[in-house]
Amino acid sequence: MNVEQKEPARGGAIETREIVAGFDTREVLHGISMQIQPGQVTALIGPSGCGKSTFLRCLNRMHELVPSAFIRGSVQLDGQEVYDPELDPVFLRRRVGMVFQKPNPFPSMSIRDNVLAGLTLTNRLKASEADLLVERALNQAALWDEVKDRLKSPGMSLSGGQQQRLCIARSLAVDPDVLLMDEPCSALDPIATARVEDLIQSLAGDYTIIIVTHNMQQAARVSSRTAFLLSGELVEFAETNTIFTSPRDQRTEDYITGKFG
């Protein structure tokens, strides 16, 4: 458990204060305050419907994309208010990338174009710059050696695990500080899962990673801190080793030992 992580070389500190969020009249999060250290892997665990994914989406303002969504409270990224009306959400989402449950490469694009997709929306790149970026991002995502000879093949031609690493490469290509991962391995086989977990640990230190997972062993393996959410409340947030060996709160104990409900 808990690979020792490097000192962060960059930003990516997140602080939430009393986040209250939901849809229409239904409140999903009832006031979540957390301090997430830069360069660390933080796992969010909890039963379905506890608000993990909603919380994750509040961090890069994806929650507000749902028409009925509401949010109150504060999210700060390196001291800057994420919900500042002056802040461009598109810019924010470049600093705070997201990887989803199901790999979602753009179907009509090649592997190379998928990696560059986030950049070409806002930047004009020379071909040589683009080549370097593609190689760097695919290397970071531990996919380069597997795809370097077929960069023009469709992204969809890759296996599920490779597609997920391609999506991670796409997120990394825009040089974010934070990566949000919403059950990134739930659609992958054990070998592909191990590759993604290995990747998460190799990215720690350089990026702040927040991962939502239902797989508690995965949370125990990859994260240094773990938060347990229940019914929209933060029950316990502590060192991962503590959470999985001697949690303080009986509700955490009941959940991780399978006595919940």
Partner: peptide, 9 residues
């Protein structure tokens, strides 16, 4: 089972 917490202990 990959037990956790009190079960693991």
């Amino acid at each position: 089972r990959q037990p956790m917490a009190s079960d693991l202990r």
